[in-house]
C-alpha cells in the first residue's frame, strides 16, 4: 500500500508535469523582480570600481563584508549563506530553529503561501482525478475550493503559530537550555538538540500531515467545512497510522536523498558568463526537483487516501465531467 501510493504519487506528478512546471514558474516569477532589485543594489554599490572585477570573477569576502555593512532592507539578506548548499542548510535551519524570514521578505512569502493555497485546490483536484483537466478545469477547481482551503490554511496557520510561538521557545529556549545547561560536552549537547528537533519535528509533521489529509478530504470529498475536514483527517490518521507514517517516512527519505545529491552537486563559487548560466540552470533544476517532491507528497497522500476509501471507485479514475467534484462524478455514474 505504501509503495503503491508512493509509485502512484510519482505517476500522478509525471502525468501532470505541466503543473510542476507551473509552480516552478510561479516561484521564478515571484523571485525575479526582487533578484533584479538586489542586483541593482549590488551594481550601485560596486559602481565603476575595480572591485567589481573580483566580485564578478569569483568571490571577494572583503567587498562582501563592506556591502553587508552598508546594506538595508532586502540587501541585508545577501550574505554568504546564499552560496551553494549553504543556502539549503540555512533555509532548513531557519525552520527548525524558528528563525523568522527577514522582514523585507515577509510580504513576498505571505503572497507565496496565499498563491499556494489557491493552487492547491487545482493541484489536488488534478491528482485525485488522474486525468487531464486543462487550464480551465484547474483554475475552476482552484477558484471553487479556494475559500474553504483558505479557511483550512488559516486554521493550520494558527496551529503552526502556536507551535512556533509557544512550543518552540519552550522546547529550545527553556527545556533544552535546562537540560544542557551544565553539559560541558558539545557532542552531548548536539544529541540533545537532535532529540529536541525530533520532538518538535514530530509535532510539526503531525500538524502538517493532518492538514495535508484535511486538504485532500476537502477536495476529494468536496467538503465545505475546513474544521470538519480536519476532524476527518485526524480520524483517517487514527485509523491508518502505519500507512500514513510509512508513506510520509518514504517521502521524507526521498527528500533526504535529494538533499544528499544536492549537497554533492551544489556549485560553490564560480565565474561569470556561461558558467554562471550553467550554475543557475543547475539551481533551477534542483528547485524543480524540490517542487516536484512537494507535489509528490500531495499526490502520494491523495493516492493513499483514495486507496483506503470504503467505496472502491473513489480510487478509480473517473470519467471527465467537469466541473463536478470527483465525488459528484462518481455519484452521477
Amino acid at each position: 500500500m505504501i509503495i503503491a501510493s508512493w509509485i502512484s504519487g510519482w505517476r500522478r506528478v509525471a502525468q501532470a508535469l505541466g503543473m510542476a512546471a507551473g509552480v516552478h514558474a510561479l516561484s521564478f516569477l515571484l523571485a525575479l523582480p526582487l533578484a533584479t532589485l538586489v542586483g541593482d543594489r549590488i551594481a550601485a554599490q560596486l559602481g565603476s570600481s575595480v572591485e567589481a572585477g573580483a566580485v564578478a570573477d569569483g568571490v571577494n569576502n572583503d567587498w562582501w563584508s563592506e556591502f553587508t555593512a552598508q546594506a538595508t532592507g532586502l540587501s541585508t539578506t545577501f550574505t554568504p549563506s546564499i552560496i551553494g548548499f549553504a543556502s539549503t542548510l540555512d533555509t532548513l535551519s531557519r525552520v527548525l530553529d524558528a528563525r523568522y524570514p527577514p522582514a523585507a521578505l515577509m510580504a513576498l512569502l505571505g503572497a507565496y503561501l496565499a498563491l499556494w493555497t489557491f493552487l492547491s485546490g487545482g493541484l489536488l483536484d488534478r491528482y485525485a482525478r488522474q486525468r487531464p483537466i486543462r487550464a480551465h478545469g484547474f483554475f475552476s477547481a482552484a477558484g471553487r475550493l479556494f475559500f474553504r482551503l483558505a479557511r483550512l490554511t488559516a486554521i493550520a496557520g494558527l496551529l503552526y503559530w502556536l507551535l512556533f510561538a509557544y512550543v518552540h521557545p519552550w522546547l529550545f529556549a527553556e527545556a533544552l537550555k535546562d537540560v544542557t545547561r551544565t553539559v560541558g560536552v558539545e557532542r552531548t549537547t548536539f544529541f540533545w538538540r537532535l532529540f529536541f528537533y525530533a520532538i518538535f519535528g514530530i509535532a510539526l509533521i503531525t500538524i502538517n500531515v493532518a492538514v495535508d489529509y484535511a486538504r485532500i478530504r476537502l477536495v476529494v470529498e468536496d467538503r465545505r467545512s475546513a474544521l470538519g475536514a480536519l476532524r476527518a483527517a485526524v480520524r483517517f490518521l487514527w485509523h491508518h497510522p502505519l500507512h500514513v507514517i510509512g508513506l510520509y517516512a518514504l517521502n521524507g527519505a526521498t527528500f533526504v536523498l535529494l538533499l544528499a545529491l544536492w549537497s554533492v552537486a551544489a556549485p560553490g563559487v564560480y565565474g561569470p558568463g556561461m558558467m554562471m548560466w550553467l550554475v543557475f540552470a543547475a539551481g533551477q533544476l534542483y528547485l524543480f526537483a524540490r517542487l516536484a517532491l512537494k507535489l509528490h507528497f500531495l499526490a502520494s497522500q491523495t493516492a493513499l487516501f483514495q486507496a483506503h476509501l470504503a467505496h472502491a471507485r473513489y480510487s478509480a479514475a473517473p470519467v471527465q465531467a467537469w466541473p463536478e467534484s470527483p465525488a459528484a462524478e462518481l455519484i452521477a455514474r
Binding site: A31, S87, D90
Partner: peptide, 9 residues
C-alpha cells in the same frame, strides 16, 4: 540570491 530566495519560498 534568486536561487536562495526561491528555495526559501
Amino acid at each position: 540570491w534568486m536561487v536562495w530566495l526561491q528555495e526559501l519560498m
